[in-house]
Design a protein around this nucleic acid. Structure first.
Lengths: 125, 125
DNA sequence: TATTGACTTGGCGCTAACTCCAGGTGATAG
DNA sequence: CTATCACCTGGAGTTAGCGCCAAGTCAATA
């Protein structure tokens, strides 16, 4: 697939794909004889995975580290698992935090319900 | 309270507090005769609220908008409520998104469990 | 009176993660 | 043959949200 096709499919810009390649997040993308990028199925799966993890707030730096470990082979499986576990913990903590804030926001919105009733009551007079 | 006291109490830097004031997020902070900031109880509640909403990912820009509405009085209550409802929706969506990613990460980690068992099995031989 | 030490302002610097641009190349359509 | 068009590279620019620093002021202490 060309860079434009991949970009469209996964809703990223070609610039972002080139950027990811430059920093080592998407290494080994094949080229045609003319030097044009030709993304494989595997590359696409990586793009999808990266998009997913990025949207979870995982930093590009961490993902670069993960990709680097992956390309060093089986011996890095424990290290990769450790990285994933850390990320999971962060996501769990983040969900907890957001739930707490959500509760607070709901409470605040209850207050607004009341105040709006008062306000509208005053308008009637 | 002085800026240093507020900063320590809410775990922000004095620079951040001055920054918030500059952009209109923390308006009307009183000053002593010498020109030194003197935070009121109300100011402190705002700082705490801002910290909370910022940690939920609400942008500084949105908070400035909310604060501006607040200072325009009761007539902006519906508008403020609308802002809060929008923020709630975003947080709910974010929690949903994170839960989905968490599920995927758990699934991936299951795969790592298996692979690590294989790997260790191979080491024994 | 002189020296701290916390505070003041204005403004430049910094990081992450892109985003854009100029100038150049290769394949294809007319 | 040339003109278009998508792609290439290297590098500079952008945005949010602060952080840092110099130079100056003020109140309290030695």
């Amino acid at each position: 697939m060309t860079i434009a096709e991949v970009a469209k499919k996964f809703e990223v810009t070609p610039d972002t794909l080139r950027y990811y390649e430059r920093i080592g997040l998407l290494p080994n993308v094949a080229r045609t004889s003319g030097g044009i990028r030709d993304y494989s199925e595997s590359d696409c799966r990586w793009v999808e995975y990266i998009k997913c993890m990025r949207s979870a707030g995982v930093s590009v730096e961490t993902l670069v580290e993960y990709v680097a470990l992956f390309h060093r082979g089986k011996e890095t499986i424990p290290a990769r698992k450790k990285l994933l576990l850390e990320q999971r913990e962060q996501i769990v903590a983040r969900i907890q935090e957001l739930n707490d804030i959500l509760a607070r926001l709901n409470w605040k919105l209850d207050g607004y319900e009341e105040r709006m009733l008062h306000y509208e009551e005053n308008l009637k007079q």
